[in-house]
Measured scan of single mutants.
Amino acid sequence: MSGNGNAAATAEENSPKMRVIRVGTRKSQLARIQTDSVVATLKASYPGLQFEIIAMSTTGDKILDTALSKIGEKSLFTKELEHALEKNEVDLVVHSLKDLPTVLPPGFTIGAICKRENPHDAVVFHPKFVGKTLETLPEKSVVGTSSLRRAAQLQRKFPHLEFRSIRGNLNTRLRKLDEQQEFSAIILATAGLQRMGWHNRVGQILHPEECMYAVGQGALGVEVRAKDQDILDLVGVLHDPETLLRCIAERAFLRHLEGGCSVPVAVHTAMKDGQLYLTGGVWSLDGSDSIQETMQATIHVPAQHEDGPEDDPQLVGITARNIPRGPQLAAQNLGISLANLLLSKGAKNILDVARQLNDAH
């Protein structure tokens, strides 16, 4: 009898209710805020589980004197976190989706994509230029951005401005803007500013005609071990179906173009009346040469937790077992079709030249 009692006690200790789920994140304040929001949602869904947040620095956090596009290494903000995932030191990792490459290392998958916040870019102005827009900034004003995508589009749109690289986390960039006289304004992701509670610093939100956004911008991705079915089931509740389908289309477009950090590629997606609209573009580094096109596809946005595919093969690095396969494939095909259209119009040449120029500098 006593033996059975011990077995029952052991089973209770090993039951999922007692389990601590370890969540990996970057150390920056924004990353911690984003991770806290994901953990809060998981806690609400699984009140019996405990969650421990483990923060670590990544290569991208450490190399702050070089433009991201020049470092010449993929997975700048993800490699150390993936290493911890691989060694079973954490069970899942919360990322900004735009930091996750469209091809993940073997053994990993994006197990959830959370509801997207505003994906557009924002302009934050130096205190002396508050009330201005990019259009009304004085001639030769210097605007800071760490992104080739932003610089290429904005140089084309605002030729009277000069664009220079600015690195560091959000706090560091804002301090550089406010305390030094080098920059009249800087460009940042609206979602990051909003998550930090800095709505009052948003001086201008850039519309798609001015600057399309990065693939996955404004959404959070939760990376897990691809074979860890328990954790895949656990994080599945975080999937937002519309965000998922938009981001599958965007990531398929980028992957098929073979774009990345070192080339200016941008997108804009919208879901309306059962249609998914995808606009994508590529630019030369100075913005003088560009190709942009829009395509659409009829896609039914499923309700969360309709029964999805059981075999769960990944699409552009994403596993969404609780979302039907048909809409996911339709979104992926839309991204591939748009990429093929741009490639047929000469996108590869623009991107190759951009890559060579970026590598040469």
Rank of each mutant, 00 (worst) to 15 (best):
K43R: 11
L342P: 02
I350Y: 15
I291R: 15
T190R: 07
E179V: 14
H83W: 13
I187G: 06
L177F: 05
S344M: 05
L188S: 05
L232V: 11
A122M: 07
V224W: 03
L97C: 07
G335R: 03
I113C: 12
L134H: 02
H95V: 09
K79N: 15
L244Y: 14
H126T: 08
R116D: 04
V202C: 12
E135A: 14
T190V: 11
K140W: 14
G131E: 09
V39C: 10
L154F: 07
R32K: 08
D311R: 10
D240T: 06
F158D: 09
T298A: 09
V282C: 07
L188G: 09
H239L: 05
E293G: 14
L134W: 06
K345I: 13
Y277Q: 01
Y46C: 09
S344W: 02
A252S: 03
K227R: 07
I231L: 04
L49S: 11
G144M: 12
T294R: 10
L343N: 15
L351W: 05
L238Q: 06
A191T: 08
W283T: 05
G192A: 06
A152K: 07
H207E: 14
V235I: 03
H256E: 15
K132C: 11
R173D: 01
I166E: 01
L188F: 08
Q204W: 02
V316N: 02
T319D: 07
S69M: 14
T190I: 15
D65T: 09
T102S: 13
T35W: 04
G221C: 09
V39S: 07
P47W: 05
I21C: 05
Q217F: 03
S45A: 14
L81M: 08
K27I: 09
G107D: 11
G131C: 07
I113Q: 04
S28C: 04
P324Q: 10
K157H: 13
A189F: 02
H207V: 10
A360P: 02
P264W: 03
R246I: 06
R173G: 03
G236M: 01
L278F: 10
R201T: 06
L100M: 09
A122I: 03
L64A: 15
E250G: 02
Q153A: 06
M212H: 14
C114R: 09
S337C: 09
V23K: 00
E52H: 05
D307Y: 11
P309K: 13
A303T: 12
K272G: 01
V215G: 14
S45T: 13
M212D: 00
A303S: 10
A112K: 01
N88E: 08
V202F: 01
P159R: 10
P138S: 11
V103P: 12
V224S: 15
R201P: 04
G274R: 04
A330G: 09
A339P: 00
T58R: 02
V215K: 02
P208K: 04
P264L: 06
T25W: 00
S146R: 10
N88I: 11
Q153F: 00
G111W: 02
I299M: 15
R321I: 10
F163M: 11
L134S: 02
L30T: 00
S28E: 01
G144Q: 01
P106Q: 11
R156T: 13
A84C: 07
T109C: 11
L245G: 05
H207R: 07
D61Y: 07
I350D: 04
G72S: 13
A266D: 08
Q292D: 10
M271E: 15
I113Y: 03
S165N: 10
L285Y: 15
I187F: 09
Q34M: 08
I336V: 06
N349W: 15
T78F: 00
H256V: 10
P101S: 08
K227W: 06
K98I: 04
G280T: 01
L161A: 05
D121Y: 03
L97F: 10
K43S: 10
K70G: 11
L92Q: 04
D99F: 02
G60K: 02
A270Q: 14
L97D: 01
K62G: 15
D65P: 09
L148E: 04
H300D: 15
A67F: 00
V263H: 02
N200T: 13
R116I: 02
P47Q: 11
R167C: 04
G317V: 06
C261H: 00
T133K: 10
T102F: 03
P313D: 02
D311C: 01
P208T: 08
G216V: 03
A84D: 08
Q155I: 15
T243F: 00
I63E: 02
L97T: 15
H160A: 05
M212W: 02
V235A: 02
Q34P: 01
G24Y: 00
F108V: 09
D91Q: 06
F108Y: 13
K70T: 09
S69I: 11
P313V: 13
K227D: 14
L343D: 14
E250S: 02
G308W: 11
A214S: 06
R19S: 08
Q275Y: 01
A226C: 13
I231T: 07
A266E: 04
R22H: 15
W198R: 08
S45C: 15
Q296S: 08
I350G: 00
A112Y: 05
T243K: 06
A266S: 07
A40P: 04
P101N: 07
P302I: 02
G111V: 04
E86N: 06
S69D: 09
S28I: 01
V90G: 04
V215S: 13
S96C: 07
L97K: 04
E82S: 10
G216D: 00
T25A: 11
L232K: 12
R150T: 04
G107K: 07
L342I: 06
L177C: 06
N333C: 01
D286K: 06
V23F: 13
N169L: 09
P309S: 10
Y277E: 03
G274N: 00
G144W: 04
Q155S: 13
S344C: 07
K157L: 12
D65N: 05
Y213N: 10
P302Y: 09
K348G: 14
E89V: 11
I71T: 08
I54C: 04
I21S: 00
G280A: 14
V237Y: 04
A40S: 10
Q29R: 13
D233R: 08
D230Q: 15
T319N: 05
K79P: 08
L30S: 00
Q275W: 02
T58L: 05
S28M: 00
I205L: 14
Y277K: 04
V202Q: 06
Q275L: 02
I110Q: 00
K128R: 08
L76P: 10
E117Q: 11
V301I: 12
R251E: 03
Q328V: 05
D233W: 03
K176A: 09
G308T: 08
E209V: 03
L351Q: 15
T243A: 02
